[in-house]
Design a binder for these strands. Structure first.
Length: 265
DNA sequence: ATGGTCGGTGGCCGA
């Protein structure tokens, strides 16, 4: 099974890019983030025409997550148990969507952007990450051999080599110690970054800000991950980042991350 | 030169 994750930064603006990429790359399951639309606005027909089923969770013009699959899409879950909300009063946002695809529990995740270390959004991001780690840990406590993929835009660059220059990012979000600790807590709960061992850095990124000409300058960050449970990680045969999708007019600011998974033994 | 671009939307907000 070929599994991918991609923050598309508006599915309606990116529809041609995404569908043609799917058709060219033989992808079975795509976890999508930042669809930026409500359910009724999601362009389903373009995917069903290619033989995919679509599961979408969107509540407004912000956020929005989807899973597109041609190998099944069972037991949908919108949000996870204990997922924090935002606002006053607190309300859940469309940032997490789970479904089982050919026996693999796939989560499409869009971790909140902290904006600034002193911004209230930062506390929200921390709450959200900790709750995700806790939920993911409980799934494995229940079934240690479960094949689970936590796929998405984590808005955290967990190691120094995941960014172009730590000096340029001093005092910024994505690289702070507490964000990194929260990310590492998910790994400690029994999950594995299956891309880095196969795509060693430095200079391997998934995101380049549209602002400040980050892409032409090679100033990227690796913030999109497929974190696989041990049982799933053992089945991963290859992994890559399709940097070519960041090129040209009409590109998202993120590139797709692709993982190949062997059939269950 | 400390900005530069893209989305959503509706006359700014979010990344």
């Amino acid at each position: 099974m070929r599994l991918a994750t991609w923050n598309v930064n508006s599915i309606r603006a990116r529809l041609e890019r995404v569908t043609s990429w799917l058709a060219r790359n033989d992808v079975d399951v795509l976890a999508v983030q930042e669809t930026k639309c409500r359910d009724r606005q999601f362009p389903r027909d373009a995917f069903t025409a290619l033989g995919y089923e679509v599961l979408h969770h969107g509540l407004s013009q912000w956020n929005g997550v989807a899973i597109v699959s041609r190998v099944g899409l069972e037991d949908p879950e919108r949000g996870f148990a204990g997922m924090p909300g935002w606002g006053e009063p607190r309300a859940p946002e469309a940032r997490a969507l789970g479904a089982t695809c050919d026996g693999v529990r796939v989560w499409s995740l869009y971790v909140p952007n902290g904006r600034d270390l002193a911004d209230p959004h930062m506390e929200y991001k921390m709450r959200w990450l900790r709750a995700l780690g806790s939920a993911a840990g409980s799934w494995l406590a229940e079934d240690p051999g479960a094949p689970i993929a936590l796929a998405g835009d984590w808005n955290v660059a967990p190691r120094d080599e995941d960014v172009w220059d730590m000096a340029d990012l001093e005092g910024m979000t994505h690289v702070s110690d507490r964000e990194r600790r929260a990310f590492d807590a998910v790994l400690d709960a029994g999950f594995h970054d299956v891309v880095r061992p196969r795509r060693p850095g430095p200079g391997v990124y998934t995101y380049w800000d549209h602002q400040r000409l980050r892409f032409p300058r090679g100033q990227g960050m690796r913030i999109d991950f497929v974190l696989a449970s041990t049982a799933l990680a053992e089945r991963v045969s290859s992994a890559s980042i399709d940097r070519s999708e960041r090129k040209g007019k009409g590109a998202s600011d993120h590139a797709p991350v692709v993982v190949d998974v062997d059939p269950a033994g």
